[in-house]
């Protein structure tokens, strides 16, 4: 799994296949503009490499939409994705990249309220 080249796209969204990102949430994260969506079997599959590649490819924002820790089908997906995201934040900070460009959202299934962790 690699991040596609941005071609002036506004955002890159990795999302768990069990979730459907709605337009309202996407607007909250990316504002208006084109978004590339990548559906993945589990958010735990998103590693630090994919997140950093998204930034290096020129996306204005890279977001990971994950199931909540309790609702993850595999049990560890959300935890792993969070770890990758936290490391990516530190790495971006050392590289001098604005960390607001990285967003992590934990969404519990059946719950319409998003945990907008990291969302400005």
């Amino acid at each position: 799994m690699t991040a596609p080249r941005s071609q002036n796209k506004k955002g890159l969204l990795f999302y768990c296949t069990r979730l459907i990102p709605d337009s309202e949430l996407e607007y909250d994260i990316f504002g208006s503009g084109d978004i590339v969506r990548i559906e993945i079997p589990c958010s735990g599959r998103v590693g630090i490499g994919e997140i950093m590649q998204g930034i290096a490819e020129g996306y204005e924002k890279v977001a990971v939409l994950s199931c909540g820790e309790k609702s993850c089908l595999h049990g560890f997906g959300c935890t792993e994705a969070k770890k990758a995201y936290e490391k990516a934040i530190k790495l971006a900070s050392v590289a001098g990249v604005d960390t607001d460009r990285l967003v992590f959202i934990e969404q519990d299934l059946g719950n319409s309220i998003y945990n907008t962790n990291g969302l400005k």
């Binding site: 690699t2 590693g47 950093m52 590649q53 790495l91």
Partner: peptide, 14 residues
């Protein structure tokens, strides 16, 4: 690539 390409992406940013 090492670390799933994370370091390579850092090089791209540099």
């Amino acid at each position: 690539l090492a670390f799933g390409g994370a370091l390579d992406s850092i090089v791209s940013l540099q």
